[in-house]
């Protein structure tokens, strides 16, 4: 069964819940290697997304995602705002005009999101950023679909890859963002951006699973 715009809306609402529940956890991770605001900023951003959703309930998936992206850009601040905002806007452009999303559409949206994040932040794999969680997730989903997996299963494999990517940031030396200023001292801490990316990807998988 394809993912409908109602599912997309439910997914964004659930993302807001998940971020809210993990607000302190993300902030704590950020206080080790950043400036202790990632959870706070992301929570403020997704609360702003929630406020915007009623105005696009009858719109296509692309418009809904772009609206969420705009809300994030104008409310999150920090690096997270432009990065996640760009990710959602690019994902929205990839599924513009669609009211039902097949597995390939979701993959295209995730690929566009990743491309947007890389364009905006110029981070490479291994720099200890969001990119380290999203890149393996996109690759895992692509691979799963090629092997005949359904939407939920492919997204669950993407989640597992994102989780591994997130944990793999622990021994990494940060090369982007504020954590890079710590040099060697950034080693041994999990990247907060990779963590929020994992949480969001996991939420998409959960929505897809509930659907099946």
């Amino acid at each position: 069964m394809p993912i409908t715009t109602a599912d997309v809306l439910a997914c964004l609402r659930k993302m807001a819940d998940v971020i809210h529940e993990n607000k302190e956890y993300l902030t704590e991770l950020d206080s080790a290697i950043g400036d202790a605001d990632h959870g706070i900023n992301m929570d403020r951003g997704f609360q702003s997304v929630l406020k915007k959703l009623p105005s696009v309930e009858d719109k296509d998936a692309g418009t809904i995602l772009k609206t969420a992206g705009m809300a994030l850009v104008s409310s999150v601040g920090g690096a997270g705002g432009p990065l996640y905002g760009t990710a959602f806007m690019q994902a929205g452009m990839a599924v513009a005009g669609k009211y039902e999303l097949e597995a390939e559409d979701i993959l295209a949206a995730l690929e566009a999101a990743l491309k947007g994040v890389v364009m905006r932040g110029k981070a490479n794999l291994g720099d200890k950023t969001m990119v380290d969680a999203i890149t393996p997730a996109v690759a895992a989903m692509r691979e799963a679909l090629r092997n005949g997996a359904g939407t939920a299963e492919a997204l669950e494999q993407a989640t597992a890859a994102a989780e591994k990517g997130m944990k793999d940031t622990i021994p990494m030396l940060a090369k982007k963002g504020r954590a890079s200023y710590l040099g060697e001292r950034s080693i041994g801490h999990q990247d907060p951006g990779a963590t929020s990316s994992y949480l969001l990807i996991r939420t998409i998988a959960e929505i897809a699973r509930e659907k099946e």
Binding site: D35, A36, D37, N41, V73, S74, V76, G77, G78, G81
Partner: peptide, 11 residues
């Protein structure tokens, strides 16, 4: 002005 220690936003 952004939030405390957080960049302001493009708008």
């Amino acid at each position: 002005p952004g939030q405390v220690f957080t960049s302001p936003t493009p708008d």
